[in-house]
Simulated scan of single mutants.
Amino acid sequence: MAYNFDEIVDRENTNGIKWESVQDIYGASDLLPLWVADMDFRGPSPVMEALKQRAELGVFGYTERPDSLYEAIEGWVLRKHQWRIVKNWICWSPGVLPALTACIQTFTKPGDRIIIQPPVYPPFFKVVKDNGRELVTNPLRYVNDRYEIDFEDLTNKFRTTGAKMLILCSPHNPVGRVWTRDELSRIEAICTEFDALIISDEIHADLTYPSFQHIPMASLSAGAAERTIVCFAPSKTFNLAGLQSSYIVIPNKELRIAFNKTMARGHLSMSNTFAITASESAYRDGDEWLEQCLAYIRANIDYAAEFFALHIPEIKMINPEGTYLLWLDCSRLGLDTAGLRRFMVKEAKLALNEGVSFGTEGEGFMRLNAACRRATIEEALQRLLNAVKARR
């Protein structure tokens, strides 16, 4: 069926954080919200229908995960990522962040060092520090309007700090890189050399664009599978974040047993009844919706890229290979962090994510969510253009 991604979906009065928390977070209510990473689209029709049928039963007691859910996940990962996983590798978590917390608590000790690669998803910083571990950064290199991994620095950081773990963001949020097989293989080689565990956050795995192919870190080789824990979820793919469900793929039996024990101690082993229904339906019947959704978002991205190039050359958009997030280099506006924040809120009337929240390497950048109606993107860019014109 053909989906209408131009449909107006009223997200107000739904307690949705993206739209209804703007006043509390940004101090103004007249902003266009393009910040938190969820979509403004209705989900796949098969998912909506499955949820309606489940709701009509009227009984929402404790629910086990059926074999059909595992089969749907196995089929999805094989179709989309050419990786054959098996049922007993799949573990469960309410979300990726609880899984990261469990991995840190299970496989490291207080005071151990953990490497992340900024500019990167802000909770990575917090989840390390909140658990009493020491943060080590391996900043990405911004070269010719594209981000690269600094492998020499990564090697040196492992050598000099004795780090026990790397938290990898793949595809990368916010810079939109889809790491190549060669890049992932180099990461594997370094982590093997220093006997480090890789926790690979692959929540954006399904959101890649033509000519870019996501490769699950653990699918690279038998060695990679032994030292990698992969975090997947339907939340970004199908806009199901509010149902709070993710699945964690751990081929290594010892790691899997240890992870599951930690989740059980925290009483985090159950799944939301509706999350089970939605996840199975999405992974079984969501291909058509996702294909159309990605084409729509890609058109939004192409529109934005052309608009910036033609009308707002002061802002450089990093063209994403994956995710629906636009990383905007605003350094040519000549504003400091506070000034850039005021400009976006007070003058452009936009609620975006501040680049500095992704690490000091993000200073001078903003993140914009392109998973919205074309009319919303057009309005946002026009507001931005008007604000820049007023400063010229």
Rank of each mutant, 00 (worst) to 15 (best):
P174I: 15
A305M: 08
D150F: 06
R342S: 14
N88M: 05
A351V: 01
D145I: 04
I229S: 02
Y70S: 10
L325D: 11
D182G: 12
G355W: 10
E7R: 12
A264T: 13
K18D: 00
G162F: 03
I312F: 00
G16Y: 06
N386I: 11
R298P: 01
P234I: 12
N369H: 09
K164G: 08
K349V: 01
L294F: 00
I257Y: 07
P313G: 05
S29T: 06
R256C: 00
W83E: 10
I318V: 14
T208Q: 12
S246M: 01
N173W: 09
A222L: 06
V178H: 06
R383K: 14
Y142P: 10
E347P: 05
E226C: 10
W327H: 13
A258N: 07
L340D: 02
P122Y: 09
A380I: 00
E183G: 13
Y303G: 12
V127F: 10
V36H: 10
E20I: 01
E288M: 13
S281F: 01
S357T: 08
P251T: 02
A380F: 02
E254Y: 13
A196Y: 04
A28I: 03
R265C: 02
C191A: 10
I312Q: 07
Q105L: 11
T237H: 01
G111D: 05
I203K: 13
T155K: 14
Y121I: 15
L243N: 01
D38M: 14
W289R: 09
L290Y: 04
L220C: 00
F274V: 00
A338V: 02
W89C: 05
A305S: 11
N173C: 13
W83R: 11
Y142V: 12
S279Y: 08
D38S: 14
G362H: 01
P44H: 03
V249E: 02
W89V: 04
E183K: 11
M344H: 06
M165F: 01
R141G: 11
D285M: 01
M366G: 05
E288G: 08
T155V: 08
E306A: 15
F5L: 01
W35H: 13
A189T: 05
G322C: 07
I190T: 13
E148R: 14
A28G: 04
N144C: 03
K261E: 13
V36D: 11
I301R: 04
T228E: 01
V36R: 10
S281A: 15
F274G: 07
G286P: 11
R146F: 06
N173I: 14
L135Y: 03
V143Y: 12
I114Q: 02
K18M: 05
V47K: 12
E347D: 15
M39P: 07
P122V: 12
P234A: 14
P320G: 00
F259V: 09
L135P: 10
E183R: 11
M263K: 02
N88A: 08
P139D: 14
F125C: 13
K164D: 02
K52L: 14
W327Q: 04
